[in-house]
Design a protein around this nucleic acid. Sequence first.
DNA 1: GCAATTTACTAAACATGTTAACAATAAAGG
DNA 2: CCTTTATTGTTAACATGTTTAGTAAATTGC
Lengths: 146, 146
Amino acid sequence: MNTQSHTQSTSRSLPIALLRARETVMAPIRDMLQGIQLTEQKWRILRVLDELGEVEQSAIANEACLLLPSLTRILRTMEAEGQITRRQDSQDKRRTMVKITDDGRRILADNLATSLAITSNIEAQMGREKLDHLLDLLEELQAVKV
Amino acid sequence: MNTQSHTQSTSRSLPIALLRARETVMAPIRDMLQGIQLTEQKWRILRVLDELGEVEQSAIANEACLLLPSLTRILRTMEAEGQITRRQDSQDKRRTMVKITDDGRRILADNLATSLAITSNIEAQMGREKLDHLLDLLEELQAVKV
DNA sequence: GCAATTTACTAAACATGTTAACAATAAAGG
DNA sequence: CCTTTATTGTTAACATGTTTAGTAAATTGC
């Protein structure tokens, strides 16, 4: 008799189900990224910067779902590798503004087709409606007060 | 004009939506665990071991969604802290069998009520039906071939 | 039986996750 | 103004994630 007999099997545990689903979705993206020496996180950062233009680090952290200490380290290497640039904001000197470089954009452009193909593949197998419904439910879950 | 104008906003990106939803769900659990010096991963391991009894490490890795190298390290410290025991399997000497100790079980028992309350809270806010539906969709997503 | 392959796990190296503490600047409130 | 508080970001320390390589034992296939 176990302590947790009241609880669900792992496949019906929300935290684990979310983790496993994410592994499934990320697997082909990781395959793509491994070919170009980019981590999942750096890829997300490049996409956010391409989408938002020049932004402060908190905004990146928020959009790309990273904590600031991680972001600090990652941006340091990305700057050294020439994928982004950073400069102090003149108005608010606490802020660092970050921008994607042409090299960074090139990485995105080179992998856009593969990225879209991965998304399409999942959509084709699950169906657009189900996928939209799933995204709605996930959005709703994020709004839950904890 | 950005490179990614074809793509969805981050809130409709499946990988990020899954990540954010998971953050929401884990936040109160992390609060609980911080009080008892346990990481999210160790908590999952204890629950799996309580549920499955004595099992090999690959089974834990699979159930708790951890890679073996991470598991090796984590189990080493958990053994040192007396929450689990490990022994070589006599039939198949490659296998290491892992079992939860009474101390480990006590940790689970002490936090069962809090854990259940967190689950109930989410269920109360989202509704059981939606939650079940979400779990169904996540299960379906995991089955997608990539 | 035995070589080749597979399985179960470990080790090492590097990247990120996570928390706590801190520095610098800006905003708020008196 | 000037103190207090909040915001922005960094650093450090430790835990885990991820990949590659390696070891030992079991299984396969001939």
